[in-house]
């Protein structure tokens, strides 16, 4: 009788080249989340948003105040997702500009309570704490439920011997993915309130 449970997972990748190590990391993470959710009997739809595809529309939105239809669709996908994987390259000790442009456009409560996995790719392991001092506060401001394990992939993580060793990249990806899939599986689907369909009556507005 019971219908198969289903969740939507959106992956936002702010890599600049195609292919990029940022996207490579994003794909590894989403595959791991997919594996864990399926293991728990939960189907999911995965949508990947490459911010590079929206680069000009992001700047245009900042200058004109409204998104193009494709950018609007990307924002809506993030707002309605049951879980989010957000991956950026680290430039100058923080997230890349494209990444910030996009999340500047997400309304304040749009990510409230949403399970989010943060991850970043960078040239050197010396930048790994950018996840903790830059990305985590950004998503804390947006009231997102960021899972405990953040995943940083430096160049050396892709080519080092001993990938199966404890606390290797593979291990961290799996741990973070498990945390996200658990958070997603217990969360009820978000219902967004539409203020244009359901306005607050004026008597109430006057008293507030």
């Amino acid at each position: 009788m019971s219908a198969t449970a289903s969740r939507s997972l959106v992956v936002v990748s702010a890599g600049l080249s195609q292919p990029s190590s940022t996207r490579l990391l994003a794909d590894r993470l989403s595959a791991a989340v997919d594996r864990h959710l399926r293991g728990a009997g939960i189907e999911q739809q995965i949508e990947v948003i490459e911010l590079r595809d929206h680069a000009r529309d992001l700047v245009n939105n900042l200058l004109t105040g409204f998104p193009s239809p494709p950018l609007q669709a990307a924002i809506d996908a993030v707002l309605t997702a049951d879980g989010l994987i957000a991956v950026t390259p680290i430039f100058s000790a923080s997230y890349g500009g494209l990444f910030k442009l996009f999340f500047d456009l997400v309304e304040r409560d749009g990510l409230a309570g949403k399970p989010v996995l943060i991850a970043a790719a960078g040239g050197t392991a010396r930048h790994s704490l950018a996840l903790e001092h830059a990305l985590r506060p950004l998503f804390a401001y947006l009231n997102a439920a960021v899972v405990a394990t953040a995943v940083y992939a430096a160049t050396e993580d892709w080519g080092r011997s001993g990938v199966a060793a404890e606390d290797s990249l593979v291990d961290r990806i799996d741990r973070a993915a498990l945390e996200l899939s658990v958070a997603m599986s217990v969360r009820r689907s978000a219902v967004r309130k539409d203020p244009f369909a359901d306005p607050v009556p004026f008597d109430q507005l006057l008293q507030s």
């Binding site: 004109t64 105040g65 409204f66 203020p195 306005p199 607050v200 009556p201 507005l205």
Partner: peptide, 28 residues
């Protein structure tokens, strides 16, 4: 939407500048 509600409450007119936003936003 609060200002549309205010205009409706008083039975006054509602004006949309229709310059900065796509038609779909104006419609709703």
């Amino acid at each position: 939407p609060e200002i549309a509600e205010q205009a409706a409450y008083y039975g006054d007119g509602f004006f949309h500048n229709n310059i900065f936003w796509p038609a779909e936003h104006v419609r709703r």
